[in-house]
């Protein structure tokens, strides 16, 4: 099991080999409230780190999701588009957004590990 890395915009990425799995953090889902709509990227789309890659919406808020790494989208999670509530229930596991083939794994060094992210979040509250 590889380690999760986190962005300041509350995305996470978990890397196995050259493939990363991307989602949003528990903190992010909590801040948004009950999600009612999720838009995930199409397979095959090329993303640069920091590109807008998905949209999450609650009743009173909408937020862009930014790609934590550069690469090509392999597969999107169709389940969360049908059941946005899953992002509230299982944000860092079942409700992953998409998988991506990394084009520059060295980018990940710039992201936070769990301990650093937790500390970052504590500073926001």
């Amino acid at each position: 099991m590889s380690e999760m890395r986190f962005t300041k915009d509350h995305e996470w990425i978990k890397v196995e080999g050259s493939t990363g799995t991307v989602g949003i953090t528990d903190y992010a889902q909590h801040a948004l409230g009950d999600l009612v709509f999720v838009e995930v990227p199409e397979a095959g789309r090329t993303l640069k780190q920091g590109d807008e890659c998905a949209v999450v919406e609650s009743v009173k808020a909408a937020s862009e999701v930014y790609s934590p790494a550069s690469g090509t989208v392999v597969k999107a999670n169709a389940t969360i588009a049908d059941q946005p509530g899953l992002v509230n229930e299982s944000p860092e596991d079942k409700a992953w957004f998409f998988t991506i083939t990394l084009s520059d794994p060295s980018e990940l060094a710039g992201l936070m590990d769990r301990a650093a992210y937790d500390e970052y979040v504590k500073g926001l509250e």
Partner: peptide
């Protein structure tokens, strides 16, 4: 009122 995230007061 629903699907308000399309609208100016949110987006």
């Amino acid at each position: 009122l629903t699907l308000s995230t399309r609208e100016q007061h949110i987006r």
